[in-house]
Nucleic acid binder design. Structure first.
Lengths: 210, 210
DNA sequence: AGCGGATCGTACTAATTGGTATCTTTATAA
DNA sequence: TTATAAAGATACCAATTAGTACGATCCGCT
């Protein structure tokens, strides 16, 4: 406990890590993990390999952190929505638009997460699998409560949870920021589709961008 | 036109190709494309590398064929359903259950298709991208006609088409044949979820397994 | 101004693996 | 029985690349 204060050095190190992760996310997304050389990442950053190894132990660790950041974003949204303590329908109408926005915002990390699972070390794959299961379980739980209360219209909460996750995650493969639709419009329409899927009365168009 | 008849040799060659593709699909699915050695595939087949190179020019060609087989399965279903010449709602209630079943049946090829896109040669990636676009465009077109006729309840046919494709494709990442639900049950329930998403009156539970 | 230590670039190594040249074996036909 | 050709196994090469040892450089501190 000698020095709890953040030093300049710590902040610089954090900044370097962040920039490295951002560059790696870009390049992994564009070329795929195995087709990307650490020299490629270094070049994107304008540095050389030892710079990266100063902050990350291995190429695998870079990948693991990128993947984790994607899942954690989604997990945060459902946990935050549940924490509001409202009923299932209200929880969902809060959660869904924010979830869609989070996926769009972190779509490159999400795509990497989906595509590169087999390139993770087993322990990292297990950790991420746990996070994903936790996320789906939370969504499923809200759906089940909504079904029991008659607030939403689903037959099998588990199947519907996977359907929602799939529909939204799929955005990472087709959403194009250069396309005709702005992120907010896509998020709004996809949210409506998902909430409609639930047969919930609470449409959430207006909550997007809140 | 000297010899149009299939010889035994042709059939043997086709058989070898099929078995090779099946083995490669298994191993690519389990370990990922780049982590799989052609020696691994050969070992799974109980042969050695030159056996594979006798029928396939390169590792990339193996991958391209596997990916193509997955997309073509889905494309066949929408084309077949459209070819029946019924209205949009009926077309969808025919298509959706068959589509779900096709995805479950070819889930390993589909998963490889999704995961390994960046490992395809550019020309193969372009071909597959074209097939996927064609597929989505056909689904979107049915949805649009259904919307115009008032048979189904969608706001943006394109977004809904992607949502459907995503929800169903996602099956490849969570469906477990060893799990508590049989393929038919999962297909039936997922079909209901998707058709419910469309606000269509035509529920298709009973058509599964037809 | 000069020293010390961490940081980053240069240059290299070791291991992996897609692809191939060559040889052996086997089945068929004369 | 023997010639022939094709299939497949053995053994190899060349290229790629994750990771590292070492040295140069630059910054803060005295």
């Amino acid at each position: 406990m000698a020095n709890v204060r953040k030093t300049i050095g710590d902040e610089v190190a954090a900044f370097k890590r962040e920039r490295t992760l951002a560059a790696a996310t870009e390049v992994f997304y564009e070329k795929g993990y195995t087709n990307t050389t650490l020299d490629d990442v270094a070049e994107r950053l304008g540095v050389t390999k030892p710079f990266i190894y100063k902050n990350f132990g291995s190429k695998h660790m870079l990948l693991a952190e990128i993947c984790a950041s994607g899942v954690k974003g989604a997990l945060n949204e459902i946990e935050a929505a549940v924490a509001l303590g409202k009923g299932p329908a209200d929880t969902l109408s809060t959660f869904v638009p924010r979830y869609v926005e989070a996926i769009i915002a972190t779509r490159k990390a999400i795509a990497i997460n989906i595509r590169e699972e087999k390139n993770l070390l087993p322990e990292d794959a297990a950790t991420l699998s746990g996070l994903r299961q936790k996320f789906v379980a939370l969504v499923e739980d809200v759906l089940r409560r909504g079904k029991d209360l008659g607030e939403i219209d689903v037959t099998d909460p588990r199947i519907s949870a996977f359907a929602i996750v799939g529909a939204v995650s799929w955005l990472t493969f087709w959403y194009n920021p250069e396309g005709p639709l702005h992120a907010e419009e896509v998020a709004s329409r996809m949210s409506d589709v998902v909430l409609n899927l639930l047969g919930s009365d609470a449409k959430a168009t207006s909550t997007v961008g809140a």
